[in-house]
């Protein structure tokens, strides 16, 4: 199964234009950043999961397969924060050598762990529901990005599933030589090092092939190109993104007020 690539569909988020969806992604990132209450953070995470399952209509199997990767990183960061974050004068629950678990470190750990999941899974929703060609058209029409640059971004998206596939082949090819079967952090680093060279070599070869094929079809011959597909406008998507920004602004001011930055 290929993760992190576009899957066709007709959900609310599929119909939302990429620029609005990107604005939504940004609103989530900002919101996740200003939230310091773990309960609120958890609420945000659950809302994103709900968006993925209902607004993007992703199958739970597919979504949670991607989700599990973020969970892994999230647990890693959670543990580090839990053990090493300063107590900042709050109640200390546990102390041993350099490790301290305190009320503050629990809060930091929850926040950071959940943030990773929130941002990661919203990015997953974005990649899965956004047809790259439509993103490209939006970049060129709405944001006026020159098409040579827009295409550089587009090409990189196209190669994600290709490289995923290739990485799997390489891992198999190494496994039968007895390489890459060890567990542990150092083994993981070695694995990444070994994967890098063959992927880089084939990446360069593919990039050259793609560049020649694009040149051979008049890519970049003129400063602009014909845009031959129209995507239907979807005002509800724009409103959706604006509501998220509104939520962020309201929450931000509420935080400023409750922490005493703004006096009423």
């Amino acid at each position: 199964m290929q993760r992190f690539s576009f899957r066709p569909g007709d959900s609310f988020l599929h119909r939302t234009d990429p620029v609005s969806k990107f604005a939504w992604l940004m609103a989530i990132a900002f919101l996740g950043y200003v939230i310091t209450d773990p309960v609120h953070q958890l609420a945000l995470t659950l809302v994103i999961v709900a968006c993925a399952l209902w607004l993007a209509r992703l199958s739970s199997r597919y979504f949670f397969a991607g989700f599990s990767i973020f969970l892994y990183f999230s647990l890693l960061l959670f543990t580090l924060q839990l053990l090493f974050a300063p107590a900042e004068g709050t109640q200390v629950y546990f102390h041993w050598g350099i490790f301290t678990i305190s009320e503050a470190s629990v809060r930091f750990a929850f926040n950071l762990g959940l943030r990773v999941i929130t941002v990661g899974s919203s990015a997953l929703v974005f990649l899965t529901t956004t047809e790259p060609a439509r993103l490209l058209t939006s970049l060129m029409t709405t944001l006026r990005v020159p098409y040579r640059f827009a295409y550089a971004f587009y090409a990189s998206l196209r190669y994600i599933p290709v490289f995923e596939n290739e990485a799997r082949n390489i891992l198999n090819a190494h496994a039968v030589r007895g390489a890459g079967l060890d567990e542990g952090l150092f083994a993981r680093f070695r694995l990444i090092r070994r994967l890098t060279v063959p992927l880089l070599v084939s990446g360069l070869r593919r990039a050259k092939g793609a560049a020649i094929a694009m040149e051979g079809r008049a890519f970049g011959a003129y400063p602009t190109k014909t845009i031959s597909v129209d995507y239907p406008a979807f005002p509800a998507g724009v409103i959706f993104a604006l509501l998220w920004w509104l939520a962020f602004v309201v929450y931000f001011f509420w935080v400023l007020r409750t922490t005493g930055f703004i006096r009423t």
Binding site: A133, Y154, G209, A210, I212, F219, A221, Y222, K225, T226
Partner: peptide
Amino acid sequence: LIFQDPDSQFCNLFVDEEVAFGPENLR
């Protein structure tokens, strides 16, 4: 020109986009 590896000569995701790519570049 057409090459050996089809995967390294595409720059779009869908068939129609790929076929229209050249004529679009010609404006």
